[in-house]
Design a protein around this nucleic acid. Sequence first.
DNA 1: CCATATACGGAACCATGTTCCGTTTAACAA
DNA 2: TTGTTAAACGGAACATGGTTCCGTATATGG
Lengths: 194, 194
Amino acid sequence: MPNDSRPEGSNDRRVRADARRNEDGVLAAAKELFASAGIDVAVRDIAAKAGVGVGTLYRRFPKRSDLVAAVFRQEVDACAAEAAILAATYPPDQALIHWLWRYTGFIATKKGLATALHSGDPAYAALPDYFRTSFEPALASLLEAAAATGKVRDDIAPYDLLRAIGNLSVAPDAEGTAHTHRMVDLMIDGLRRR
Amino acid sequence: MPNDSRPEGSNDRRVRADARRNEDGVLAAAKELFASAGIDVAVRDIAAKAGVGVGTLYRRFPKRSDLVAAVFRQEVDACAAEAAILAATYPPDQALIHWLWRYTGFIATKKGLATALHSGDPAYAALPDYFRTSFEPALASLLEAAAATGKVRDDIAPYDLLRAIGNLSVAPDAEGTAHTHRMVDLMIDGLRRR
DNA sequence: CCATATACGGAACCATGTTCCGTTTAACAA
DNA sequence: TTGTTAAACGGAACATGGTTCCGTATATGG
């Protein structure tokens, strides 16, 4: 009888390099296709673009919704992380504005997701929370720093602002982006201290 | 050469009786299944429940979305028509309240549709308009009559009220109906003249 | 260089919408 | 009543998309 009690500390073999590579490739392919072809692209197409078989894809993402959720999280991370970068690059009030536009762009790519989110699939259940816990602190620190300069109001709740921009991005289909752009512009203007 | 110029007036053969029967049956089956099994039931199941083949179903409703739209219109008609019935049965203020609850029930069954509506399928494009042109006049006349009794405010825009109740019905999933019920109760109470 | 756990690819399976077409039948007229 | 025929019917077959299976290939540790 082989010793099947694990040696306590570092146990399992490392993840194989090709596995990691493929996972990254699938995520990248999915991200691109979701953006260009919409949330409904066939899993086959994603696998093909990533240069792997569907089996490989399904090994990592047992359900299509798992892949969607993973891409979503990845993009949330990227957008949230940018807050710190912008804060280190621009003066506080400018950093805030730059990030709000970045966030607006993020939201704009999430049209299809919005409906999927409310589809009841448990794979999506955790996403709203992930969204909030990633973005709220990021925006909070930008707002705080900007308010400290005296150029921006100090009575804005980060989550309110996140939602407001999100809502503004839903309105009309035709000529939609231009309309959204104007409204967000207005809102950003409203943040300035008079 | 047969005379193929139509005798101008009544031309085409009548619609066959079985055709009409089957159309009604399909609509009835679809209505039931949409309510009990959700908007995503398979077309096959609807055809089976109606006792017809899928070919028959598709003859009348070339696209699944056509069937969905037809059921929707049918239910809008039924709900709107009830306004007149209630108005003839109850005193104006009571008729208004009864109908608002009826409308709340109608909305409650439309959860799945809401997402479908924004799916871009052209079959659904006309539905919002149909919704409004059916319900707005119905509610308007109820409101008007109720306001004339002096028991109900006279400054309510019918469409605002329709939307308000619609919005109240979207909120939380868990314990949702009870919550919605309380909110609508409040809103109806708010209609009364002090 | 071997042994093997792991990962890979893609054919096959299942569910769903949609199309096709041979068969049946209601409606009309002789 | 009966024959004719346009219309309608049923359901197999097709297209597409998610998911599973499993024989083959290979990275990793010794």
